[in-house]
């Protein structure tokens, strides 16, 4: 294990991989907790989404960026980011369709009961903001790590 003269690829450390295996599921759970419990304790969609994105960073640094990118998949990130915008817009436009103002949650009361405002806020925090933030953070990381492609999506 000397090899101080030549530059070898960074071989994976079993200790880091084990620690990440223990910690990553907990971070994911905690990010979901912060997202879902944001109405009653500090936190919310933005912070929770960032933590969910951080789980992918952890996996990428422990198991390599390229395998993690393939495991996560381009479709998931696109679906999270674009789907979040769609959820947010449809919740907002739904109130317009019911004859109210944009994001006037009270109009959902016939469908969701007296807590309609709370459920509407949870919907845009969980389905909207958290999804957008987590998807975009993962995408930014993998895009930056992949680097610049000259033309037609090929690596330089």
């Amino acid at each position: 294990m000397s090899g101080s003269d030549s530059i070898r690829p960074y071989t994976e450390s079993e200790i880091i991989m084990t620690a990440v295996r223990i910690v990553a599921p907990f971070v994911l759970t905690y990010g979901l907790f912060i997202t879902f419990h944001g109405a009653d304790s500090p936190g919310g969609g933005f912070q929770g989404g960032a933590l969910i994105g951080v789980v992918v960073f952890m996996l990428a640094f422990a198991f390599g960026i390229a395998p993690t990118r393939e495991w996560v998949g381009s479709g998931l990130m696109t679906a999270l980011a674009a789907g979040g915008v769609i959820v947010f817009v449809s919740v907002g436009l739904g109130t317009l369709a019911l004859g109210g103002k944009f994001l006037e949650y009270g109009l959902y009361e016939p469908f969701l009961g007296p807590d309609a405002t709370k459920w509407g806020m949870e919907a845009i925090e969980i389905g909207g903001v958290a999804a957008i933030v987590s998807g975009v953070i993962m995408a930014l990381f993998f895009l930056t790590a992949a680097g610049y492609a000259s033309q037609g999506g090929e690596d330089v």
């Binding site: 101080s4 070898r8 450390s13 880091i16 620690a19």
Partner: peptide, 22 residues
């Protein structure tokens, strides 16, 4: 629990990186 798991692992990562760098 997490302080006891993560802190030594981080130190291991740093020490290993220093060794790899020669």
């Amino acid at each position: 629990v997490f302080i006891f798991i993560t802190n030594p692992t981080a130190a291991h990562a740093v020490g290993r990186a220093a060794y790899e760098e020669g």
